[in-house]
């Protein structure tokens, strides 16, 4: 197990920021950590990176306790904190060299050059960090987190505040690197999770409310099938009444209708037969899948 968390609790005053959570992440997984603001994502990450100790419970990185073997654990993780703090008055190369020297890397200069190439910072490498745009700063943050080739990467909102192109670039970067590493990343963007992550954990009010592969979650949390149907013309009242006999029907706009039911195949057949019988043309029919977004909304309400 790369990351093992057992009954982790963090209390601030009387408030439980993280309330008794447990999970395992095996090596090679890319896990998306979702949750509304203030749900306890960042607190959990701070505990995993030995920044703050848990109030109770234990956490292990590569089977090492984050409290008892903190220094050893820190050697094994790469961490990109929220808001990506950086020394703005340092040069990109200087900063990476400084981080490399903290890890006492034997061939620091070579490693810094590799990271600059990997994160696409070649053009900006001679600039001060303060002069970089947000996207490039994020790359510096990632380079800093990965310079010592850690086996576990913990990234707190790595794509927040970036433009769509940059998001795709950073995402590709993380997927490339994530092939041999364990990655735990938090985000608010659902598409990101679907694009990158092999597993999703949703946390709400300090507790894990959903945990599984995106497809599994969709099955687990889907209840009704929603069928969107579009005919070539609006239905008459009589036709609408006939259609209502099959199940719940909601007119959306013009000739578009929404059907709610349990059995997808049976519903499709019904609609098709209905259209043939009434000599209507079906111009569109699609199943609205329960998106991760819906699941997120459901479990964090």
């Amino acid at each position: 197990m790369s990351i093992r968390v057992e009954n982790l609790v963090k209390t601030y005053g009387k408030q439980n920021a993280v309330n008794n959570i447990s999970f395992n992440i095996s090596s090679g997984e890319i896990v998306g950590f979702l949750g509304p603001n203030g749900a306890g994502k960042t607190t959990t990450m701070k505990m995993l990176t030995c920044f703050i100790p848990p109030s109770s419970g234990r956490a292990f990185i590569n089977d090492m306790d984050v409290e008892l073997q903190a220094i050893e654990v820190r050697r094994q993780i790469g961490y990109l904190p929220e808001h990506n703090p950086l020394y703005t008055d340092m040069y990109v190369k200087e900063y990476l060299q400084f981080i490399a020297s903290i890890y006492q890397l034997p061939n620091a200069t070579k490693r810094v050059a590799e990271m600059i190439e990997l994160t696409g910072l070649q053009v900006e490498q001679k600039k001060k960090i303060g002069q970089l745009s947000k996207g490039y700063r994020q790359r510096v943050g990632l380079a800093q987190a990965m310079i010592h080739n850690p086996s576990v990467l913990i990234l707190d909102e790595p794509t927040s505040g970036l433009d769509p192109n940059q998001i795709v670039e950073i995402r590709n970067l993380i997927t490339t690197i994530g092939k041999e590493k364990t990655v735990l990343l938090s985000t608010h963007i659902m598409q990101e999770v679907e694009a990158m992550c092999s597993r999703v954990m949703i946390i709400n009010k300090g507790q894990i409310v959903a945990n599984g592969k995106p497809e599994e979650l969709k099955q687990q949390f889907s209840s009704d099938i929603i069928l969107m149907v579009k005919f070539n013309q609006a239905l008459s009242d009589a036709q609408l009444k006939e259609l209502r006999g099959f199940g719940e029907v909601k007119p959306i706009a013009g000739a578009e209708y929404q059907l709610v039911g349990k059995d997808e195949e049976a519903m499709k057949a019904l609609v098709f037969n209905f259209a043939v019988k009434n000599q209507l043309m079906l111009s569109e029919m699609k199943v609205n899948e329960n998106s991760l977004e819906d699941i997120f909304k459901n479990v964090t309400r």
């Binding site: 030995c50 920044f51 220094i71 820190r74 993780i77 961490y79 703090p85 950086l86 020394y87 903290i102």
Partner: peptide
């Protein structure tokens, strides 16, 4: 203030 405190304290330094 700048948050780099968190960077330093999550590095393998006592």
């Amino acid at each position: 203030k700048s948050g780099t405190f968190e960077i330093l304290t999550t590095k393998p330094l006592t």
